[in-house]
Amino acid sequence: MTLTATACALLGLVAWALVLVFLLVNQRGLMVLTGKMKVNAFAPDGSNTPSDFGQRLVRVHANCLENLPLQAAVLLYAIAAGQTALTDPLAGLLLGARLFQSVMHLISTGPLFVWLRFAGFFIQLAILGYWLLLLGGLI
C-alpha cells in the first residue's frame, strides 16, 4: 500500500497531538518532581499552571484534539472511498496549517500571533469545507 499525502497528513495530525501530549506530560512531570506543584493540583484547563507557556500548551493540545475528529473523518473517508486524489493536493497544507497554528499559539498570545493563529485555523477550515464539497460531488 502506498502512503498517500492524505495518509501522511492523517498520521502527521495524530503525531503532532502525541508530541504535544509528551510535552505536556514532561512539563507537568518536571513541576511535580521539583516540588513546584502537587501531582493532583493541575486544573484540567491549565489555568493554574505556573507559566504562560504551560497554559498555552494545554490550550494548544486541547485545540488539536478538538479539531482532530473533523480532520480525521474527512481524511479517513477519502482513504476508504479511494478518493485521495481529491485530498492529496492540499493534505500537506492542512497539516502545515495545523502546525503553524499550534506554534503561533505556543509562541505568544499577542495580537499579531492571534491573527497568525487565526489564519492557520481558517486555512484548515477552508480546506475541510472544500474537501467536503469535492467528496460530496457538489463541485
Rank of each mutant, 00 (worst) to 15 (best):
L86R: 04
A43Y: 13
N67H: 14
R56K: 09
L95H: 07
Y130H: 13
V114I: 15
I79H: 02
T84H: 09
P50H: 04
P111F: 09
A7D: 03
I139S: 06
I107V: 15
G110T: 15
V14R: 03
M104D: 03
L106D: 03
I127C: 06
S102L: 10
H61P: 01
V103K: 01
L99T: 13
V14M: 13
L106T: 02
S47E: 00
D88V: 11
A62F: 07
L68S: 00
T87Q: 11
L95Q: 01
V60H: 02
A15Q: 10
A17H: 08
F121P: 02
S108H: 07
L86K: 05
G46W: 14
T2C: 00
K36Y: 09
G137Y: 08
F22T: 13
L3G: 00
Q71K: 12
A119L: 15
L10Q: 06
V39N: 15
V25N: 07
L95C: 01
G35F: 10
L106V: 07
T4W: 01
V114D: 05
G96H: 09
N48A: 08
T34F: 00
L57I: 14
L94S: 06
P89D: 12
M1V: 14
G46V: 13
L75Y: 03
A80S: 12
V103Y: 04
G129D: 09
L75T: 01
T6S: 15
N63G: 04
V74L: 14
L13M: 10
D88Q: 12
G46K: 10
F42E: 04
T49S: 08
V74G: 07
S51M: 06
G137Q: 06
A5G: 10
A78Q: 10
A43E: 15
W16T: 04
L86A: 15
I123P: 08
A73Q: 03
F22R: 11
L18M: 13
A9M: 02
